[in-house]
Every structure is written in C-alpha cells, then in structure tokens.
Write a protein that binds this DNA or RNA. Sequence first.
DNA 1: TTCCAGTCAA
DNA 2: TTGACGGGAA
Length: 315
Amino acid sequence: MAAAPRIAKRLAAWWEANARDLPWRFGRATPWGVLVSEVMSQQTQMSRVVPYWQAWMELWPDASALAGASTAEVITMWGRLGYPRRALRLQECAQAVSERYADELPRTYERLVALPGIGDYTASAVMSFAYGKRVAVIDTNIRRVLSRVFLGKESMGGAASAAERALANTVLPQDPSASVMWNQAVMELGAVVCAAKKPLCERCPIAGECLFLESGLPGLGEKRTRPRQRFQGTDRQVRGIVLNALRGLSSEHASSQPRTTAAASRAHAAAPRSLPREQVESLWKDHVQLDSCIASLDEDGLIEILPDGSLRLPR
DNA sequence: TTCCAGTCAA
DNA sequence: TTGACGGGAA
C-alpha cells in the first residue's frame, strides 16, 4: 500500500485528462441530481443513463417535484432502463426527502442509507460525489481495480468482504478533495480501462504499479460470480413485456425512449388507460406464468389489476 | 454469453 | 448468503 500516494497522483492526472463529460459531474448537478444519477446507474451502463437522467431532471428537478408526480408517469419515464422497482423506490425516496427533510437531501451516510432504494454504494457515492466527504466508495469497478492493483488477484463475487473494505479505506487519500477524485478515477478506470474480461493494460496509467499485471494477470476472466439466470423465457422477461405494454397506454405519444418535456406533460395530464384482459393474454402464451408475473407486478406496486381483469399503471 | 456506478427480502 | 430483479451492448 506504500505505492498508494504515487498511484493516486498518476490517477488524478489521468482523470483530469480522460474523465467522461457526464452531465451530473463537475459540480453541475444538485445533490439530489447526483443521487438520481447513482440510482439510475445501479447495474446499468452510464451511456444508457445519460438521456434518461436529462429528461428526468428536466421534468422533476428536485425531490418535491418527483414526490408529486403520478406513479404511472414515473414508471413511464423510467422507460426501458431496467429494474423498474428502482423508479418506485426513487419516488418513495423523494417523498421521504420532501416530507422528512424539507426537500433537502440529508448530509450523513446514516440518514442517506435509511432512505428507500439507497444502499451502501449509493449512500457512499452521494457522500463523496455530492458532498465532497472522505468516504470509501465500494462498487464492482473499485473492488476489481483495487484487488488487481494492490493484491494482484481478481476480487471474488458476492458481498464486499471486510478485507476489501479495509483495503479501500487504507488506500483512500486523506485529503477529502483528493479522496473524491480517487473514488471517481478508480471507478472510471474500472469502467473504461481495467475492464472485467479485457483490461486495456497498454492504456492504463498505473500499469507500472499493478501487481496483477506484474503477476501475468492470473485468473483473468475466471468465473467469479454465480451463473446468471437466462433472460429469455424468465419471469423477468414476462414482467418487462407486461410493463412495456402498459407504458404504451399512458399517452398516444408513448415510446420506449425518454420523451420530450411537452410529451411528458401530456402524459401527466392523460389518465392512464387500462389494458383489457383479452389483450393481456395475448402478451404471453404461458398463462400460468403470465398470471404469476402479473401478481408479482401487482405486489410490487408496479401495476394495478382492475375488477374486470384489465391492467393499468398505478395512479 | 457475460457484464454492468446495486438493493432488498428471505 | 443467496436469489430475484431488466435490458442492452460487446
């Protein structure tokens, strides 16, 4: 770890020259905007997040604005970002911030992590990126980079171990401002250079300090997470199909892309229509699975089932 | 096929 | 600790 200060210096220079120009970076977003970007980025590539974040923040610039939106509109604006329960949690989070904290995002980790949909990563990211506090951020990129550089091996799957957290805290620069840049730079390096399967070591600013490279990339690409569930034919796919059909109902201008402000206004004004049972059944051949998914969507609060069996987004 | 700025419930 | 939870890109 003695090399950490030297690595931090190289990384800082690399960050200054190579940081992607994302709209919520470089002090251009409010703390709430930063939080929204982090929630949208959970398990989702940044490149896909940008247009959604811009449309979202234009429509709902602060927590109280989002708190006052209809659930149907929130789900519609979430579009095809994936994991739509995140949209529900984000609105619940907005309502909590609006009501409990007078529309001002809390400034402590403990209060942030207590909000709906905000876990350890997002709370830490907001503390660091929005408030400039010295907090170790632990995400999949940082875990991979730190494990490779300082331990010379791949990080294991599953939850971050105590050892990983200790490492992250040990190598984090003492100066708060430097710690923020460190978090962002390490994360960025993991995203664009120190990739999971094909690291671009020839373009890495700290290749000369990397124990993993020095050891010959032992176990690179080795399966270290449990096998992922196939998507085709799963409940996740069916849920997505049902939800997408309902999203298309909210307004005549519905689309899978982030809508314009004007179109969003019309969606807000229009009462969400419902999808007749007959059309619901045409969505998926296996009706047992279909009904199971409809029930789970209902339990999640993502849809409503009307007495006649038709479906709609919650009002 | 795998991976991606994770969170939550069981 | 494990499984469920979207969808798209390489």
